[in-house]
Amino acid sequence: MASPAAIREAPAWHRFTPGQRLARFAITLAIVAAIVASIRSIEVIPEFLVDAPEQMADLLMRMWPPDWSHYPSTVHEALMETIHIASLGTLLALVMALPVGVLAAHNLVPSTPVNLAAKLVLVSSRSVNSLVWALLFVGIFGPGALAGTLAIAFRSIGFVGKLFGEALEEAQPGPIEALTAAGAPWVSRMTFGYWPQVKPAFWSIALFRWDINVRESAVLGLVGAGGIGMALDAAMNLFQWDRVAVILVAIFAIVVVAEIVVTQVRQRVI
């Protein structure tokens, strides 16, 4: 039992060491400084800011009532095209990402230069936004759904390949060693050793990416890469706000439907 004097002399308890406190303070200070610097130098016209709620209300007024008759004539077709872009893009990405993912997994291809090269492919695919990929493919193949599909595919390679490669690296070595000991060739080791172990991860990555791609493919039309974004762009340029409202509702609906589909499929398959 410590005497009262010893308790009094014991140093006060602190949650953080002085070093930790200094680090937390420095980061907080840097964040506040960044916010203040941004507020001071950003070019926002104050009149626009004051006017914003009024303008938003005006915009919503013009959107109401939505022009539903516009849906069967143009929006439906564009919406279907968006789904095709997302689905074909995802499939194409899966086909291209599987070999890259395998090359990136160190336990499958035990060669560090090959792993690094594969990872470089994956990182560069992920670092370029799908809109930029779309601009690129519109420049190459001209406007249309083909450019959108390729943009979605190239953007998704990095995502799918990275997660698939990580899943492969986390596979248990036991079954593979057993197959190797039995003299199984490479193909059998892949199909009976690795594939059953990474199958759930693979399907969940594919579904997750498809869900993201449905959202993203709705935007690509703004740069001319097909889908509902093109209908949105056309309606906005003509100030047909009642049509814009229909298109926004359609995008909202397709996103919700995609989420329901993904949840259902995930429950059934995985």
């Binding site: 800011l49 914003a52 303008q55 935007v219 703004l222 926004l248 995008i251 909202f252 996103v255």
Partner: peptide, 15 residues
């Protein structure tokens, strides 16, 4: 539910 870029065009028209 909306991609930031779609929200951005709506705000560009508004403000």
């Amino acid at each position: 539910s909306f991609h930031p870029v779609i929200v951005a065009i709506v705000f560009v028209k508004a403000v």
